[in-house]
Design a protein around this nucleic acid. Structure first.
Length: 406
DNA sequence: TCTGGGGTCCTAGGACCC
DNA sequence: TCTGGGGTCCTAGGACCC
């Protein structure tokens, strides 16, 4: 039986949502109607474009590029800060509305959902009519627009939602692949990125049709598993299910671009403490422990390095993550000017409460108990309530963003 | 005032074991 | 005392996504 899949994509999500928030708070200017972007703070070197208005797009402004560069293309560009708590709320509103149609919804990101409608369409209902209905309801009830892709698998639904924007519904059924998808440049294909485009171009592959008509074995030889994936996607092949049960994260990390290059390892260690605190807090919130801690740095010349360590036993304790990351950094640092520093934890395992009570009198467990108390307070009163003295200093120093909620 | 931050998945090479 | 081969785990780096 053919699957009935929708992909719902919020148009210019961050910008649209900020536009709505501003209008709701009494502002009269709708920033969707002017050349505008949502971007980070340039003074602290977070200045990239996170979302753009259609007007800004007309000037060639691209998501991910430095605001500095975008302003050169578009001198009148207006820049607004993002509000991630608000974005999460709008995302939840959308999800609640979509739940009225199916409970098989995969939240692919804050502004994208896949919906499996296969079991939720009555015999006399058509998928595309549902798509138009959802499109209309979101606009009327939530105040922003979405593109919806209609297809028999996730890949084709996603490709379809990426066709002409905004506020559109597109189908991409097998018989339409040739006329709607194969004509596109390979750069438009999901999972063909910055590095693959020139390699494929060198092989004479420019369009998705070029890629689709290659020998699959040859692509596998050249690109490994990724070659197989690209070939299948070019041919519209994708069996992956809509994963609607929320899954535990496989890694948890925090990183920060520092407002200026730092050479002093003691200052870097202070940042590591703040990052450790956040990472450990999030691990505990998910009831997870990490087996591997890794530290990543990016030097002032934009080269990344990382070191990792497998722990003797998994942890979600700030102090352990901090001590491990400090050790990793000391092997990595070598007096380089550091632009970005981050901690990632991986090989996560469920935190079994039983295990705690068995080893009740170990130092770790005492420490865990303390941190659980801190944890509860944070959950109740918000992240900012309880912070270490050292961390406050770091916060002032590096001006960590307010956004701590998920 | 040039270049964010959160992820997932894959690969290659080395250590180690049988 | 001239050197196989398979398997697993670990590590560093990289591609890609939003």
């Amino acid at each position: 039986m053919e699957r009935q899949i929708l992909h719902v994509d919020v148009n210019n999500a961050f910008l649209s949502w900020t536009a709505i928030d501003r209008l709701a708070s009494g502002e009269t200017l709708d920033i969707r109607t002017i050349p505008a972007v949502i971007g980070g703070d340039e003074a602290s070197r977070h200045g990239v474009v996170l979302a753009k208005s259609m007007k800004a797009k007309e000037f060639g402004v691209k998501t991910g590029e430095p605001i500095y560069q975008a302003r050169k293309k578009c001198p009148n560009l207006q820049v607004f800060q993002g509000d991630y708590a608000s974005y999460q709320k709008h995302s939840n509103d959308l999800y609640q509305l979509l739940l009225e149609y199916t409970d098989q919804i995969e939240r692919f990101s804050v502004d994208e959902c896949f919906m499996d409608m296969t079991l939720f369409l009555h015999p006399n209902e058509k998928l595309i009519d549902k798509a138009y209905e959802i499109n209309k309801r979101v606009k009327e009830e939530l105040g922003f627009t979405v593109n919806i892709g209609v297809a028999n698998n996730k890949l084709l639904a996603k490709m379809a939602s990426d066709f002409k924007k905004p506020d559109r519904v597109h189908t991409l059924y097998p018989e339409e692949i040739k006329t709607k998808m194969w004509i596109l440049p390979i750069s438009e294909l999901f999972m063909v990125g910055r590095k693959s485009i020139p390699k494929l171009a060198q092989m004479g592959i420019k369009t998705i049709e070029d890629l689709a008509s290659q020998d699959e074995k040859m692509l596998i030889k050249r690109f490994g598993k990724h070659g197989k994936l690209m070939w299948e996607y070019a041919n519209g092949i994708d069996q992956s299910p809509v994963v609607y049960e929320p899954e535990q994260p496989k890694c948890i990390g925090n990183s920060i671009t520092l407002p200026e290059d730092i050479y002093n390892i003691n200052r870097l260690n202070e940042v590591l403490l703040a990052l450790s605190e956040q990472v450990a807090f999030r691990l505990r919130k998910h009831a997870l422990k990490a087996n591997v801690v890794s530290v990543q740095i990016k030097t002032k010349d934009f080269i990344s390095y990382s070191h990792q360590k497998t722990l003797a036993s998994p942890t979600n304790i700030t102090k352990e993550i901090y001590e491990t990351s400090k050790e990793l950094l000391s092997n990595l640092h070598q007096n380089r000017g550091i632009r970005l520093i981050g901690i990632q934890t991986s090989k996560l395992v469920e935190n079994e409460q039983m295990q705690l009570s068995i080893f009740d009198n170990t130092t770790n467990t005492k420490q865990e108990k303390i941190e659980n108390v801190v944890n509860d307070l944070k959950k109740k009163y918000g992240y900012e309530v309880i912070t270490r003295a050292g961390e406050m200093k770091v916060k002032n120093m590096i001006n960590i963003r307010e956004e701590k909620k998920e």
